[in-house]
Design a protein around this nucleic acid. Structure first.
Lengths: 222, 222
DNA sequence: GTTCGGGTACTCTGCGCAGAGTATACAAGG
DNA sequence: CCTTGTATACTCTGCGCAGAGTACCCGAAC
C-alpha cells in the first residue's frame, strides 16, 4: 500500500496541499511555488498530473467537481480522502524520523577523483569552492531578506538545513584541497606518481578494497 | 551531445571502468561492487544494461567481442571510444567543479514540518537523531577497519564526505529540536497555538512567503 | 545424490517522470 | 490595432530506470 509509491515527494506535497482544502492540480502547483516549496521538492507539470493520477488510482485523493471558466481548459478539483490523510501523516512521519540513503552527485564525483590528474583535481575542487561560496552568500542574502519581511524561521527551516549542509561541504572541500596540496592525504603520493609516469599502462588501477563486510552488511545490488 | 544524458552517474562509472580496460557489463558491476562504489552510485542490473545500451547509441562505448563459456549466457565485452574518453573527462570535471541542485528528502520533510503537531515533530526528530548517531558510529567503525587494512584515504574520500554531511545534519537537527523545545524558534508559539486549538478550521495555513525574487531569480518551473 | 544456496550473465516489462507542446485569455506596448 | 508576453490549465510522448524474472553452473550440505 505504501512501499515504492513513496518515492516522489511531490506526491506528499500534493497530499499536504489538499489537506488544507480541495484544489485543482494547477492550483496546487501555484501554491507550492508561492511558498517556495519548489526549492525543496522537484516540481514540474508533467510530473504533477502523473502524480495526481497515481494518487487517484490509490484512492488517496478523489475528484470533487470539474469546473470550467470561459473556454479555458476544464479544471478538475480534487479532495483528500480519509486514506489520503492517513498516508500523508504516515509518510511525513517516516520522512522526518528515518534518514534515507541518498546519492548526492558530488559523492560520486569524489569516489572517481583518482581518475583525474591530481593537479587538475585540485583546480576543479577550487572552482567548486568558489561556486559554493557564491551559493552560501546567496543563501545568507535570502535569509536576511526573509528576516526583514518578518517571516518566522519555522517556515524557513528547510533553507537553514540546506545552508548547514552547504557549509559542511565547503569546509570539507577546503580541507581536502589543502590535504592534496600538502600531500597530507594518504595515497596522494602514489596518485601523483601514477600520473607523473608518462605512458602509464593501467591508467587508473584503483585497487579493490577487498572489504566485503564493513558495518551494514551487503545490501544486495538488485 | 551531453545535456540531459548526464543524469545517471552510473553511466560515468561505466565509462571509468572501461577506461581501465574493456569489460562486459556484469564485470563492470562486479568491479564497482568490489570497490564499494555502490555506496556512492545507485547500481542495479536493470539500469546497468540500459545505460550501456544508451552509451553505445551515443558511440561512447563499442562492443569488441562476444564470448561464451559453456552454455552460460553470452557476454558482450565493450571498450571505450575516443569520444567516450572525452565525455568521461568532461563529465567528471563538471561533477567535481559545479555544485548541482539536489533534493534531499529530509529537506522536503523539513519544509512540511508545520503540518505535524509540534510535539510529534519533536519526537520524530529525536528518533532521527538516534538513527543518525547509529549511522555515524557505523561510519567510524568502517573507517577504522579500512585504516587497519592500510587502504589509503584517497580511496575513501567519498565516505569521509558522507560522514561530514551526516555530522552536519546531526548537529542541525539537535539544535532544531532544542529550539522547538525551548520556543526559541520564531513561529513555534504560533505553531503550538494552531495545534492546541481544538477544531482548528484551516488545519495548516502555512502562509505564503510573498517573496518572488530572493537572489537567484525565478528559475522556471517547467 | 539430490537439493539448496549462491554466483554468473543477462532480459523483460512497465510505471515514473521530464520536456515540450496546446489552447485560451488578458494586459501592456508600440 | 496588432503583436508580444505572461498567466491559466492541462495533454502528449517517449526515454529512464527499477524490480522481477530466466537460465545455467557449481560447491556444499543433508
Amino acid at each position: 500500500m505504501s512501499g515504492r509509491n513513496r518515492s516522489n515527494p511531490l506526491a506528499l506535497a500534493v497530499l499536504i496541499c489538499l489537506f488544507e482544502r480541495p484544489m485543482h492540480p494547477y492550483e496546487v502547483a501555484s501554491t507550492l511555488r508561492q511558498r517556495h516549496k519548489q526549492e525543496s521538492v522537484r516540481l514540474n507539470y508533467g510530473s504533477l498530473y502523473a502524480v495526481v493520477a497515481s494518487l487517484e488510482r490509490r484512492r488517496l485523493v478523489a475528484p470533487v467537481e470539474t469546473e470550467r471558466e470561459g473556454r479555458l481548459p476544464e479544471r478538475t478539483v480534487y479532495e483528500l480522502t480519509a486514506a489520503g490523510r492517513a498516508e500523508m501523516h504516515e509518510w511525513l512521519a517516516e520522512l522526518v524520523s528515518i534518514p534515507s540513503k541518498e546519492y548526492p552527485s558530488f559523492e560520486a564525483a569524489l569516489s572517481f577523483l583518482p581518475a583525474l590528474a591530481p593537479g587538475e583535481a585540485v583546480a576543479l575542487l577550487e572552482e567548486r569552492i568558489q561556486r559554493l561560496e557564491i551559493q552560501l552568500a546567496l543563501g545568507d542574502a535570502a535569509r536576511e531578506h526573509v528576516d526583514r519581511l518578518g517571516i518566522p524561521r519555522l517556515l524557513w527551516v528547510e533553507a537553514e538545513y540546506r545552508g548547514a549542509l552547504l557549509h559542511a561541504e565547503h569546509e570539507y572541500v577546503v580541507r581536502l584541497v589543502e590535504e592534496i596540496r600538502t600531500g597530507t592525504l594518504d595515497g596522494s603520493d602514489w596518485w601523483r606518481a601514477v600520473f607523473a609516469d608518462p605512458g602509464r599502462p593501467t591508467p587508473v588501477p584503483l585497487p579493490g578494497l577487498g572489504v566485503h563486510d564493513v558495518g551494514h552488511r551487503a545490501e544486495k545490488t538488485d
